[in-house]
Design a binder for these strands. Structure first.
Lengths: 320, 320
DNA sequence: CTGTTAGCGCGTTCAC
DNA sequence: GTGAACGCGCTAACAG
């Protein structure tokens, strides 16, 4: 394996000059640049990435924290980040937390010790204090509304979008609306809960605690929801489901039990994933790949703190 | 950020000694070892990973090639690899190929230039020649039967398991059996095709080209299958579906169209993913996480070439 | 524009 | 048992 010194010798220049053409820096004459280029081609030289990292003091690694990686929501987010990272020669290090705080702190610690250059947290567990303690070590980017905080973020306004969905259901004649969500804590979830409560208040409806379905992450969680639903004496007539996967699971179970959708139960999904299209689920479209792209771009910028709000779009199909 | 020299100074020893205790090497007196340990704790020192990499000539990065990462099959495989890698301080670099050969070669090239220490190919596209050209650069591990090749592999015998499934369907009275698969090329797919043809031969059935459904990867691909099915004058009575996701999609469409499963159409899935359990799909269980674990272990061993065959298990449910 | 040289932080001979 | 010194391959002042 040839190294930079060999190339320098072959091209009859100094290692600095080689380094300069390698990094597209100015101040190299056309002739020398050509000589270096030729030497590189003749020897199929490849820079030693480890040496570059050491010298630059960077790892070209970017940490991505997700609760689970085999969920389409996070899968798409990761894809968006990865696509953009690839272009810039950055690699991704995945931290799958399963919502354990310690795993998230592990990622933060790696940032502290420069084992990664930046950290994107797709779903935060730990308190802001802990995040704040780490901001000085490198860019930390969040996928939730972090305006007013010391970190950048790309987010959707869950209060706004949840309200929008609720009003849409209301206009369609639904007074008793419930919702399904993964976990109750978490900034995004709390925004939604607030939107839900404000909505009830506005229309003078009472909050029914059992209209809220927790632990809804995957297709299979839909079964539990339907089971609970059929045992309720006064069930909701519509459900706002924070993931198309779960909505699809619910829809499948409903069909099995001959529960008519949307007549007996209306369903509104979230994300607009392929499964929503195929099953004709009315949903709120979230451009996850684009969000991933922006998260990456923010991660690369360690000077500015910015906040990108992403808009969602209501897609009308057949479940409402 | 303290470095090894600082620790040496604090502990009153040389950097060599610090390095020795860091790497659990012998020939360090208990006292000095303790002194170093204390110094490390007091300064929350963390070795500079880049320097370690450069010095060792290793990256502690392991490449993983998958066609797409948001499919549960590969998601679980990745999870299995990642779990094991984490324990050994290895990070994963994901190569998402979308079945483009050039992306796979890119990964191989990174191995060649020591940008990763090993490469696990979960679904191969390129020819064996190309693989062979790279074996000298580092461990390459495949997730297909590679016995007789110069690389290690963890695999399931798709010929055997496909035959097993076909015979099971046959015993249940199905003569006209079709199957759904992602792509036709690919070693695993070809094994299955051979099993299919041999099965037909054995029972004197004719090969119906349109009993083979290609491009079946995700839930949503099930729709296409059912559409084609209802337009067939002489459709198969049973389908062997190489992914539970697709089987679930087919099942969902069938319910929509009032096609009775298994009476009018029997379905046998593959993998035993959560969705198969919830939808009561008869399937062949594949221990993907365990396969991932073994792939990693093989990747770490750059001296021996080994081949692990993994057994699958038939899980009887309600779709056959 | 170009080259010399000093690090980057750690692993590893080798002499003591 | 221990430590001085060199090397890993590259980047970035700095001097010219």
């Amino acid at each position: 394996m040839a190294n930079i010194k060999d190339i320098a010798k072959m091209a009859g220049v100094s290692v600095t000059t080689v380094s300069r053409v390698l990094n597209n820096q100015p101040y190299v004459s056309a002739e020398k640049k050509d000589a270096v280029r030729r030497a590189i081609e003749n020897s199929n030289y490849q820079p030693n990435i480890n040496a570059v990292h050491l010298s630059r003091g960077k790892t070209f690694l970017i940490g991505v924290v997700v609760p689970f990686s085999n969920h389409p929501y996070f899968g798409l987010l990761i894809e968006g980040i990865a696509n953009e990272a690839l272009k810039n020669n950055y690699k991704l290090v995945l931290f799958q937390t399963n919502y354990e705080e310690s795993r998230e702190i592990e990622a933060l610690t790696m940032l502290k010790y420069k084992q990664i250059d930046a950290l994107i947290i797709c779903s935060r567990i730990c308190e802001w204090d802990i995040i704040n303690d780490h901001v000085s070590y490198g860019p930390i980017i969040l996928c939730e509304d972090a305006r007013g905080r010391k970190v950048s973020s790309t987010f959707i306004d869950h209060y706004k979008s949840f309200s929008k969905a609720l009003e849409y259901l209301y206009q369609r004649g639904h007074k008793k609306i419930g919702y399904c969500i993964g976990r109750r804590t978490g900034a995004n979830s709390q925004q939604r809960e607030t939107a839900y409560k404000d909505f009830l208040m506005k229309f003078n409806e009472r909050l029914e605690e059992n209209f809220i379905f927790l632990e809804c992450f995957n297709f299979e969680d839909g079964e539990r929801v339907v089971e609970r639903l059929i045992n309720m004496s006064n069930p909701p007539s519509a459900l706002l489901v924070s993931s198309d996967q779960v909505a699809a699971g619910i829809l499948t179970c409903c069909k099995e039990l001959n529960i008519l959708v949307p007549d007996e139960l209306a369903l509104m999904g979230f994300d607009n994933q392929p499964i929503a299209k195929i099953m004709n689920i009315t949903t709120l479209e979230v451009p996850l790949i684009e969000i991933g792209r922006r998260l990456y771009i923010q991660a690369m910028d360690n000077t500015t703190i910015s906040h990108d709000e992403i808009q969602v779009k209501l897609i009308e199909r057949l479940t409402v």
